[in-house]
């Protein structure tokens, strides 16, 4: 607990410094959170090159908009995660639109596919263990919504499942994830 509160105090100080335009503090913020952000973004865009662009875009945005971060609304990590994830999903949608135009036969599309499979292989050990604890239908929901940025209505249309069912699956998936993390945390402590 002592370590945790110390970390919280450090984060608070870090936020204050970045707010004052401290670029060294921002570098520390980058060190602390970029691996998680990069991991999530990579899972979404399925390409190292695109992930790098998205992460750069996201961090520049985080720097510029830093004054709009409100600690009363949530942690700095959640705030940054949302920015990065939204950028990644925007990028994914753009790529998808382009892909539809190019009708799947271009080399770039194949490239993305390849890089996607590489990413999955690198990252899936932890995730798979985790996600496997969820029911397959919840795993699918999580994939569509969290990694592809589908709305619940889009998932409903895509899977041909009633909207109410999608909503309850989302709820259950989140509850299950929560259970998983609570147990994992207990193991770590």
């Amino acid at each position: 607990m002592l370590i945790l509160s110390h970390a919280a105090a450090n984060t608070e100080q870090l936020i204050k410094s970045v707010r004052n335009g401290d670029q060294v503090a921002f570098a520390t913020l980058y060190d602390n959170y970029s691996p998680a952000l990069y991991g999530v973004v990579s899972q979404i865009v399925k390409s190292d090159a695109v992930a790098e662009d998205v992460i750069q875009d996201a961090f520049v945005n985080i720097w510029k908009k830093f004054h709009s971060y409100d600690s009363a609304k949530g942690t700095i990590f959640t705030w940054m995660l949302n920015i990065a994830r939204n950028k990644a999903i925007d990028s994914l949608r753009k790529t998808k639109r382009m892909g539809e135009v190019e009708i799947q036969d271009s080399a770039s599309n194949v490239g993305i596919r390849d890089s996607r499979s590489t990413q999955l292989n690198e990252n899936t050990i932890g995730v798979r263990a985790l996600v496997e604890k969820l029911q397959p239908e919840q795993q699918v929901i999580l994939e569509y919504i969290y990694f592809q940025g589908y709305t619940q209505q889009e998932v409903s249309d895509e899977l041909n499942v009633p909207l109410g069912t999608v909503k309850s699956r989302v709820r259950i998936a989140m509850r299950e994830l929560r259970k998983v993390f609570k147990t994992t945390l207990l193991f770590w402590i």
Binding site: Q23, F26, A27, Y30, D31, S34, P35, A36, L37, Y38, G39, V40, S42, Q43, D48, A51, E52, I55, Q56, F59, V60, G74, T75, F77, T78, L81, E122, N123, G126, V127, L130, Y146, M174, L177, R178, F181, T184, L185
Partner: peptide, 24 residues
């Protein structure tokens, strides 16, 4: 949010070193 943070941590991958320089 904490659940989503934990989930993101499980995905954590070290980004290439040159990315930090570029961003800074």
């Amino acid at each position: 949010s904490e659940v989503m943070e934990s989930f993101a941590y499980t995905l954590a991958t070290e980004p290439p070193a040159h990315l930090k320089t570029k961003i800074l």
